[in-house]
């Protein structure tokens, strides 16, 4: 579930990944989550459209429960937006692309 513009982030890489760009968006997902699969193409489109301005990663919550816990992710999918390493926004559940565009544009 990763593409050229979306990085699968694991465990200890997470902290460094947040420093990759001023704006970083992270999609928390799991393989058994139907919504997450539906959301995946939207996340990939966003990563392509905002390439350079926004780094996009995915965290598999099954193998990275500690990261999910650290950011109070208690439902899937949850997408967090970080600015300079700090969470500034989040969207929970299956959302239309517009909702993500709105969230990203607010912080560009």
């Amino acid at each position: 579930m990763a593409s050229a513009n979306v990085k699968q982030v694991q465990g200890a890489e997470f902290a460094n990944f947040l420093g990759e760009n001023r704006l970083v968006m992270v999609d928390f997902w799991a393989n058994w989550c139907g919504y997450c699969h539906a959301l995946s193409p939207v996340i990939e489109q966003l990563a392509e459209e905002y390439a350079g301005k926004l780094s996009v990663g995915k965290v598999d919550t099954d193998s990275n429960g500690a990261i999910a816990g650290e950011f109070n992710v208690m439902g899937l999918p949850t997408v967090l937006l970080f600015e300079n390493g700090k969470e500034v926004d989040r969207l929970v559940g299956a959302m239309p692309k517009d909702a993500f565009v709105k969230m990203i544009e607010k912080h560009l």
Binding site: Y35, N72, V73, M74, G75, L76, R90
Partner: peptide, 16 residues
């Protein structure tokens, strides 16, 4: 919502 409130036990139960 997503910080403890969920609409689906089979989706989010594992977090609890």
């Amino acid at each position: 919502l997503g910080r403890g409130v969920s609409y689906c036990a089979t989706c989010d139960g594992m977090f609890f």
